[in-house]
Design a protein around this nucleic acid. Structure first.
Lengths: 192, 192
DNA sequence: TCCTTTCCAGACCATTTGGTCTAAAATAAG
DNA sequence: CTTATTTTAGACCAAATGGTCTGGAAAGGA
């Protein structure tokens, strides 16, 4: 009868996610991963496959969490426009360290998507998922009179996907910059 | 009397830039660089210092070219608003391969800025330079009546810096996506 | 031709790399 | 206690890594 799995798969994966988020894919070594995950080399290979497979799972976990957070924000905010405001201004208000660290999704896109078709497909699907989430929210906003009826909610949703990514890159580039707030402020003006 | 330098430093640097642009910093090996640059190992070390120093020069070259291109676009377009339109729609109209490849500046930010203070400073300065370029252009637009007088040109300039980066990431993530055009279209609406 | 300098072609270096393999230790049910 | 399975602790592997070093080849002015 099998020995029980001693380490927590999810916990290990979460730790791997943090290392990849912090350092990216190429700059993260197996040694980094094993140290952070607290497991042995063979366990990593048995449980996750290889480094690339682990990265894909870690990214999936990250993106799922992000989407859940954004969805939660959109559902609990007093209004949809307020939720968008919270999203963008919340990003600007993050600590300098968090801003510098950036977004694991953006990092994965930029570092790997040009040469990793599997990851590129996964990411494109995620991006469409985020767009769909924003689209539904903006449709609700329009129905409630929060948005002028003339607004193209599909286009707005897409715009916000790009804007979020742009703000994240700008924040990584210069976390202290006052420009970030202006970027957020002008971005949000499209809701008026 | 010294032997003349046989290889063209600028040409070699340009080729290095293309390799780094294509693969990023970590995923680019010395072997990759030497092959592309067409020089020997010792020449690279004598001429550029080391891999990191070469990367910084390559990035500088890239960013200088980009700024020149944007500046040229802003100066030669019939109007400033038209220049912004050309910038964003031009990006969307690029080939799929070019979109997938992305922006070397964004790649450098995301991959290296969190852990490379020297590069982070350089990039933050570049970002401010781009903002200044956009600001001057938008001021001209306002003076010419292309923009409503109430528009905060500083804020708009900052917004466009972020928007450009966001569109680049989105294009890398999903070059074929129709969403890119909507992102550009809504971004440009802030000029109205 | 000589001298000086640059460029090249590797050898060499220590270290790291992702991944495979083996055997011992640990765990838990029967 | 036995059995089956998982986990660990490395050893091992071939290859790659960024960088240093050496000596020969090449170039050009004096």
């Amino acid at each position: 009868m099998a020995r029980t799995r001693e380490f927590d798969r999810e916990e290990a994966l979460d730790r791997a996610m943090h290392v990849f988020w912090d350092k990216g894919y190429e700059a993260t070594s197996l040694s980094d991963l094993l140290d952070a995950m607290g497991i042995a080399r063979q366990s990593l290979y048995d449980t996750f496959g290889d480094k690339h497979a682990l990265f894909l799972e870690a990214l999936d976990r990250y993106e799922t969490h992000r989407l859940d957070q954004l969805q939660s924000c959109l559902e609990t905010a007093p209004s949809v426009t307020r939720a968008f405001r919270d999203m963008f201004e919340g990003l600007v208000d993050e600590s300098e360290a968090v801003k510098r660290r950036g977004c694991m999704g953006v990092s994965a896109v930029v570092e790997l998507a040009p040469h990793d078709p599997e990851l590129a497909r996964s990411i494109a699907a995620r991006q469409r998922g985020l767009e769909a989430l924003f689209f539904r929210a903006l449709e609700r906003a329009r129905e409630k009179g929060e948005l002028p009826p003339s607004k193209d909610t599909r286009a707005l949703a897409r715009f916000f996907v790009g804007a979020l990514q742009g703000l994240r890159v700008a924040a990584t580039a210069d976390p202290k910059s006052a420009a970030l707030r202006d970027m957020a402020r002008v971005t949000l003006q499209v809701l008026e």
